[in-house]
């Protein structure tokens, strides 16, 4: 993919970029490395590794996306500034 265009000078200037976003690669790549988990052992509660580990991947996805969301959230101050600029209440999204 080509790099995004540089942001225009028009306000509000923001960026989706954050080093935390790189974490998202982990839950994308790991479940696709099929040869690493296409095996029976170790079993868990009678489940072959192939099956239970893929449910563990679900948890991995939840944790990484959740972490990236928390770390890239806008600060309250930023939200308040844009809300004031628009003269509207912040609604949901604070905290």
């Amino acid at each position: 993919m080509s790099p995004p265009q540089p942001p225009a000078a028009t306000p509000p200037r923001r960026s989706d970029r954050s080093p935390w976003n790189w974490l998202l690669i982990v839950p994308i790549v790991v479940p696709l490395l099929v040869p690493l988990y296409n095996q029976r052992d170790p079993e868990l509660f009678g489940w072959p590794f192939f099956y239970w580990v893929q449910l563990v991947f679900v948890a991995l996805g939840v944790l990484t996306t959740g972490l990236v969301y928390r770390m890239t959230r806008r600060s309250k101050a930023d939200q308040a500034v844009s809300a004031r600029a628009a003269d509207r209440p912040t609604r949901d999204g604070g905290r």
């Binding site: 225009a8 960026s15 989706d16 939200q79 600029a85 609604r91 999204g93």
Partner: peptide, 9 residues
């Protein structure tokens, strides 16, 4: 470009 990062407020 700024459209793509616009927030609700």
């Amino acid at each position: 470009p700024s459209d793509y990062t616009a927030e609700r407020e």
